[in-house]
């Protein structure tokens, strides 16, 4: 196996005279170094990821075929956990909640990010770094802190948002008591924290579009609106796929915002108004250790949903641009 030989051509200049024995040993060492070093350098990643990342994922699949108690016994039951999912009211409730919050957070967020990125992309903009930093700043705060602050903003009796609503004659809303209102409050946290991040990503995509495309379009008489639809959006497709995929992976795993918003109640509101799939999985697998096998089935169901939604997004975004 002389794969490594290509990276190290023998030195053309004659090596200094060394005793033959020491030289051959040096060559062996050198060979070993060339052959083994790459594996040595990637080993830390694969060892730790293998143990704490990859193995648990496989084990989730194995567990989901069992009636499994995390601190007790387990017995093989085949696909029973998965058939049970179909009739589980709480599972479908969590699915609807997750997707409801996901839609309320992703769509406004992406539209707003697209708008802000277009604004930040103007040639003559002043103080651009300042604007970029300020818009990105929410992403720096921890989700727990965001949820605490927004929980207070949405507080029923003396929260700022109900006060503003009262100014325009709307009665105080009990935000965590209904589905639509709790979803709105939780989605607003996600929107607040991630709009700036997505703005920067879209802005980066816009700046990578060759300027001469716009110049040529301007010469052909295309106005800015037309340029946006015909050049910016189509050229932004790869960036959009990236942003939407990230939002999907993050959005369907939503956990901390609803948990902290509901003061740590894992069922998400008195009537499970805002329990997400991740919370339901946590409730089954870690709060009640005895239903870990069923929780593992929920984890795989989540994974399949994320994969499917990502695929649909990808196809939709690609088709709408063509």
């Amino acid at each position: 196996m002389s794969l490594s030989a290509t990276t190290a051509p023998p030195s053309p200049s004659a090596p200094p005279p060394t005793p033959p024995r020491r030289r051959s040993r040096a060559i062996t060492l050198n060979r070993l170094d060339l052959k083994l070093s790459p594996y040595l350098y990637i080993a830390p990643f694969f060892v730790i990821f293998g143990i704490f990342g990859f193995y648990p994922m496989l084990r989730t699949a194995w567990m989901s075929l069992h009636d499994w108690n995390l601190i007790g016994d387990h017995s093989f039951i085949g696909f029973d956990n998965y058939t049970r999912l179909f009739g589980d009211e709480y599972f479908w409730n969590a699915t609807i909640n997750t997707f409801g919050i996901f839609i309320l957070s992703t769509i406004p967020q992406l539209l707003l990010a697209l708008f802000l990125a277009t604004m930040l992309n103007r040639t003559f903009l002043r103080a651009r770094t300042l604007f970029r930093m300020a818009i990105f700043m929410p992403n720096v705060v921890s989700v727990a802190a965001v949820a605490i602050v927004f929980g207070m903003l949405f507080q029923r009796d003396f929260g700022l948002i109900n006060w503003v609503l009262s100014l325009v004659g709307i009665d105080a809303v009990d935000w965590d008591a209904q589905k639509w209102s709790s979803w709105t409050a939780i989605a607003s946290m996600v929107n607040w924290r991630w709009t700036g991040y997505n703005t920067l990503i879209l802005l980066a995509g816009m700046q990578a579009i060759p300027k001469d495309l716009y110049e040529a379009a301007a010469i052909d008489g295309a106005n800015q609106w037309k340029q946006f639809w015909r050049i910016t959006l189509p050229m932004l497709t790869p960036t959009f796929v990236f942003v939407v995929t990230l939002s999907t992976i993050g959005g369907l795993q939503l956990f901390t915002e609803p948990l902290v918003f509901g003061n740590g109640n894992i069922i998400g509101g008195d009537q499970r108004e805002f329990q997400t799939l991740a919370m339901y999985m946590y409730e089954l697998g870690i709060e009640n250790l005895s239903t870990a096998g069923y929780g593992a089935a929920v984890a795989w169901a989540m994974f399949v949903m994320i994969a499917l939604v990502s695929l649909v997004n990808f196809l939709l975004v690609r088709r709408s641009v063509k």
């Binding site: 995390l70 369907l252 929780g295 795989w300």
Partner: peptide, 25 residues
């Protein structure tokens, strides 16, 4: 191996959560 790493980035982290909790125990 590089492809493995790229695929890994796309996998939701919560997938292994429950068994990992058991391992920590």
């Amino acid at each position: 191996l590089l492809l493995t790493i790229i695929v890994t980035m796309m996998i939701p982290t919560q997938l292994g959560l429950i068994p990992l909790w058991g391992m920590i125990q």
